[in-house]
């Protein structure tokens, strides 16, 4: 549906053409425009420079920019494709694309594997798994004795480490996810299907006219 009175609006330096971004992701051009509304909000919450800083990401997730969280940090690092410490609009859209309900499942599986491969060795190692369990317990203020944590990690490793080499590779992760599809639940954001409804103001400022 086209817009009657399109108006050019100022774009940040990291802004990328919605047509290009739509061609590389599951989003339509209109959805990319709607995501820009969200991006503007997130990227101006602390420093108004058109880039999402780690503190702004934390603020959006937790309503607290000082809160340290291992998993939020990992997500930020994976979104930061250029590894320059900030997330620009193109990175934001491309990374969120993995979370779209229509994104290929193998992209979600790969992203989750990278997320849990804390030290980026190509494997999820036992120490990393324990570190993540301990971080989760700390975050949730749950207290479990160390031997219980060890038992949880051991049991998971016995199940996942099919080759028995003490580490989980991508292939073993794929098998584990087949067995426990719920492990990918966080990798799909239903919101992304309704993004144009959540951020409708783009309709008034859109430069894009969709041809349907």
């Amino acid at each position: 549906m086209g817009c009657c009175h399109s108006k050019k609006v100022g774009r940040t330096p990291g802004y990328e053409d919605p047509i290009t971004l739509a061609s590389e992701t599951p989003f339509t051009e209109s959805e990319v425009e709607a995501l820009y509304e969200l991006f503007k909000k997130l990227s101006s919450s602390i420093i108004n420079d058109g880039l999402i800083h780690r503190e702004e990401f934390q603020l959006a997730l937790f309503r607290n920019c000082k809160k340290q969280n291992l998993f939020a940090d990992r997500i930020f690092d994976l979104f930061d494709l250029k590894r320059n410490g900030v997330i620009d609009f193109g990175e934001f859209v491309r990374s969120l694309g993995v979370f779209h309900p229509n994104a290929p499942v193998h992209h979600k599986i790969e992203f989750a594997f990278k997320l849990y491969d804390l030290r980026q060795t190509g494997f999820i190692e036992r120490e990393e798994l324990k570190e993540m369990v301990v971080a989760l317990l700390h975050e949730s203020e749950l207290v479990l004795a160390d031997d219980v944590v060890e038992a949880i990690v051991d049991k998971t490793f016995t199940e996942a480490d099919l080759k028995g080499d003490g580490k989980i590779d991508q292939e073993e992760w794929d098998e584990l996810v087949k067995k426990y599809p719920a492990l990918l639940k966080n990798m799909t954001l239903p919101y992304l299907k309704d993004i144009t409804l959540a951020f409708p103001s783009f309709i008034l400022t859109s430069e894009v006219e969709d041809i349907e």
């Binding site: 997130l42 989760l136 990690v153 492990l183 966080n186």
Partner: peptide, 26 residues
């Protein structure tokens, strides 16, 4: 489900830091 009975990854996946839905809350 008791945390002790969960698969470690199931437990981890409950982290608020992995819930990107929060980004869309106004």
């Amino acid at each position: 489900q008791s945390p002790a009975a969960m698969n470690a990854f199931e437990l981890i996946s409950t982290s608020q830091g992995l819930n990107l839905g929060s980004l869309f809350e106004k």
